[in-house]
Every structure is written in C-alpha cells, then in structure tokens.
C-alpha cells in the first residue's frame, strides 16, 4: 500500500495502467506528461521495444503538492499489454494502490479486453489481492473509432457487475485522460487513514 516517509514527510501512491496490448496505456501517460507543468512531474521513463511497444513498464512521477505537511506524490506505471509479457507485467503490480484498466473499443479487441481483466485478477491473486480490494477505474478508450463498440458491451465483458467507475476516452486527443486519472487518485486518497 502507500509508502509513507515520515522523516521526509512524504506519501507516495502507486497507480498502474493495465489493459490489453495497444489499448492506449502508454498514450495516456504521454498525454499526462505533456500537460503537467514542469516542477510537478519528473522524468518519464519508458522501457519499450523498437516499435514502441511497452517491454517492461512506463513510469511517470507526479507531484500533487503538500497536504497537511506531507508531500504527496503519485507514481504512474503502465504494464506491457502483450500477452507473452506476463512475467514482467506481474512484477509491476507489486504494491499497487490503484488501477486504471484501459479497454479498447475496437470490435476485434473485445475478447482481448476480457482476457486482460482475467489476467489482472490472476496476477493480483498472486499478491494475495482481489480486484475488490483495490480502487479500479475503467477507461473505455478509442471512442473515436468509427466502429467503436457500445460502452455497455465492453463493460459487460470486463466488469459485468458494474463495480468500476467508467470513463470514455480518446487518449490520442487527451479526451477523458485527466478525468480518469483524477478519479483513480480520488479513490486512492479516500482510503488514506481509513484503515
């Protein structure tokens, strides 16, 4: 859970962007990086292949500012969505405080969305966590696709019980990106001190 450094008076949260390959996780982080002013963000680190697919993770630290004397920071990560990178994907979930599940609206990715969610459950279980234990926000991305599936259809396969807050997005244009980030941050902060 959150890492608290009393000596430096810091509280750090880890937020992970999860989802199938090419759903737009890295695009979310790039947009955030491009819009957050200097001084409130650190370097963005991307461990990617030649063709820009995430190989291990992307990382972006954000500085929320000082809250009641505590510097409050968010560390954003993306996982590699490609199925065969599961070993590294699992490692990124360690110590996660909140998750953004980025689903793809393309019809031929419906099954990939469902499989990625199942895979996330399995990987969390290895850390003794259930999806219900962690704030999760569902971002339905690529709403600009001409043949985008209805949101309800995507929700029905990844979150049939409708537990997660849902945001529609076009990450390439920044639509819905900050709304999603703000919601997951809010949910993560809401748990501070309540345990």
């Amino acid at each position: 859970m959150s890492t608290i450094n009393f000596a430096n008076r810091e509280i750090n949260f880890k937020i992970v962007y999860y989802g199938p390959g090419l759903s737009g996780k890295t695009t979310n982080l790039k947009w955030i990086y491009s819009r957050i002013p200097e001084g409130r963000k650190g370097e963005m680190v991307s461990l990617a292949t030649e063709d820009e697919r995430t190989l291990f993770f992307d990382f972006l630290p954000l500085d929320l500012g000082e809250v009641k004397g505590f510097k409050t920071r968010f560390h954003l990560y993306t996982v590699p969505g490609q199925v065969f990178y599961n070993a590294s994907r699992k490692l990124i979930l360690r110590g996660v405080d909140g998750i953004v599940f980025v689903a793809d609206s393309a019809p031929n990715r419906l099954r990939a969305n469902a499989e990625s969610m199942r895979n996330m459950r399995e990987n969390l279980a290895e850390y003794g966590l259930r999806v219900e234990d962690i704030p999760v926000v569902l971002q339905v991305n690529k709403r600009d696709l001409p043949d985008a599936l209805p949101v309800e259809m995507i929700q029905a396969v990844v979150d049939p019980q409708g537990r997660f807050p849902v945001f529609e997005a076009v990450a390439t244009e920044g639509k819905g990106v900050f709304e999603t980030l703000k919601e997951v941050s809010r949910l993560v902060l809401a748990r501070v001190g309540s345990t």
Binding site: L64, G65, K182, R186
Partner: peptide
C-alpha cells in the same frame, strides 16, 4: 485538502 489539489493539478 488533497482533493482540492487534485482539482488544481488535474483540472
């Protein structure tokens, strides 16, 4: 307080 800062940073 944190929530107010979220508004400020994330809009």
């Amino acid at each position: 307080e944190a929530r107010a800062l979220l508004d400020e940073l994330f809009g």
